[in-house]
Write a protein that binds this DNA or RNA. Sequence first.
DNA 1: ATAACTTCTTAATCTAGGTTAAGTGTTTCC
DNA 2: GGAAACACTTAACCTAGATTAAGAAGTTAT
Lengths: 191, 191
Amino acid sequence: MNLLLENIAKHVSLTTEEQERVLTFTETRHYKAKTLLLKEGEICTHSYFVTKGILRSYNIDENGVEHVVSFACPGWWIADMYSFLSQRPGQLYIEVNEEAEVILLSKENRDILFTEVPKMERFFRILIENSLVANQQRLIDNLSFTAEARYDKFTKKYAELVHCLPQKQIASYIGVTPEFFSKMKARLLKK
Amino acid sequence: MNLLLENIAKHVSLTTEEQERVLTFTETRHYKAKTLLLKEGEICTHSYFVTKGILRSYNIDENGVEHVVSFACPGWWIADMYSFLSQRPGQLYIEVNEEAEVILLSKENRDILFTEVPKMERFFRILIENSLVANQQRLIDNLSFTAEARYDKFTKKYAELVHCLPQKQIASYIGVTPEFFSKMKARLLKK
DNA sequence: ATAACTTCTTAATCTAGGTTAAGTGTTTCC
DNA sequence: GGAAACACTTAACCTAGATTAAGAAGTTAT
């Protein structure tokens, strides 16, 4: 069965016709590991729903340092929200971490969908509310906790993901250098 | 004219009846400076739209340190989104910074409003999208920039607010101690 | 298989920002 | 209007995490 429709059903209930309508607005694609779906300076024309594999988004700062903004595994959406919503050049990269199958929804189609199937506007409203909450929590965590506590939270929240990710990406997500992350991990093992 | 309706009109256009409907769901209140509208552990039953004065939300970490999550001046909404959406106890405090006039919208009324006036669901969807983008940007800034650069961004983004806020709150928002903030400011003056 | 690249580790050294503490304004409010 | 409470400053010292560098271990592609 379709993972996207399953996920939508968790928040709103669509009729069979509405479900079909949703699918006509989307497109499925396969990507190999390391494919770049979006680069800094480009306009994010699509929102990506992952059905297989892993994607990640990140930015690169003035010193050339990468900062992971989010990971997306099956059942998750990913996009450069600023660029997607404004249709202006963004600052994020979106890259395939592990060979992936992805459902694409373009900005235009999303907007049409919202008026044709108002339940989908509700669905995305709820999804974005949840992202906002998660994002605010991450901000608070970054301000309140040490790197060690953040790593601990990360391993609990993304328990399955942790084993599929290179350490440097986890380090980047929690906001430390790979070198410090390595030192910290060694320290934790001694306990 | 009503600041709330003005703000709604920037994103969706309501009929006069719809406008009246919106207002029947809200309630206006006045608060003195230092009033606590919400404490950690309480359920955030209302979302607050500021028409006069300034509010702020913050959490207090395990070491008793305060972290400002957001400021709200006229035209802005404020709430503990996690608690408001889930109707579970939250971790945020919401406090009146400067004597304020506030429009309250309860969680129940918001949900009824969404089905009665679908344009209002669109309005909030757009608002939350914008919060998410701003929040993600703040996260990236915290990971990419020094305290000095973050302060610089803050003064540009909240130019009018800066002069009304105690330094310790600005320090907290950008993620440094008041002592370091004071030192940094002195350093900036020398340039 | 092996050269080339990337990831991870370890260790020495450095620094942005934290902590502690003490002193000087400013509000606030009986 | 004066004492308490709070906001800001300065300075000495401290530390979590950064930087640099160099080697070891995995991956990738030919």
